[in-house]
């Protein structure tokens, strides 16, 4: 799919903590293997129990819109042609306490509501340096949800 903010928009600089998030093709949230606590953004250790044994854990990728910012004034020159666009904050059903930022790719900003159900989708991009395939988590309004 074409990227929500344009195919020339920023790409992630991959590192050990975010590689799974941007390449797995399924939603991965960092969790603690000792106590099960899920957390975001990733950290070097578990913020709940202190264990150093943290890593990506698969999520079913379902959630709820917690808030919406509809951006009209572009603060980056590349986004002048993209406004207005919406950034949403999504709480993840199977990662309590974790909320992720993203864009809803199948709805206009005016169609979005706090409380709406969403499911994960992925924007594809190719890293021009490594040739690696990136799959960037985004969101779809889930009209099938009850």
């Amino acid at each position: 799919m074409t990227r929500y903010l344009g195919d020339d928009w920023l790409l992630p600089a991959l590192d050990a903590q975010n590689r799974a998030y941007f390449t797995a093709g399924e939603l991965k949230v960092q969790a603690c293997r000792a106590c099960g606590h899920a957390q975001h953004p990733p950290e070097d250790l578990c913020r709940a129990c202190g264990s150093h044994d943290v890593g990506p854990r698969r999520s079913a990728g379902r959630g709820r819109i917690e808030s919406i910012a509809v951006v009209h004034h572009a603060v980056h020159p590349q986004l002048k042609l993209r406004v207005p666009y919406a950034v949403v904050l999504v709480s993840v059903d199977d990662a309590p306490g974790v909320s992720l930022l993203g864009n809803v790719v199948n709805g206009a900003p005016s169609e979005l509501r706090i409380g709406a159900r969403v499911r994960v989708a992925f924007e594809e991009a190719i890293d021009p340096d490594s040739g690696e395939r990136l799959l960037i988590p985004q969101w779809l309004l889930d009209h099938t949800a009850t």
Binding site: Y4, L5, W9, L10, L11, P12, A13, N18, F22, H40, P41, A69, V71, V75, H76, L79, R82, Y85, V87, L100, L101, G102, N103, I136
Partner: peptide, 10 residues
């Protein structure tokens, strides 16, 4: 990366 990538910049 978890905000700028989605256009949340300021």
């Amino acid at each position: 990366v978890f905000s700028h990538l989605y256009g949340l910049l300021s």
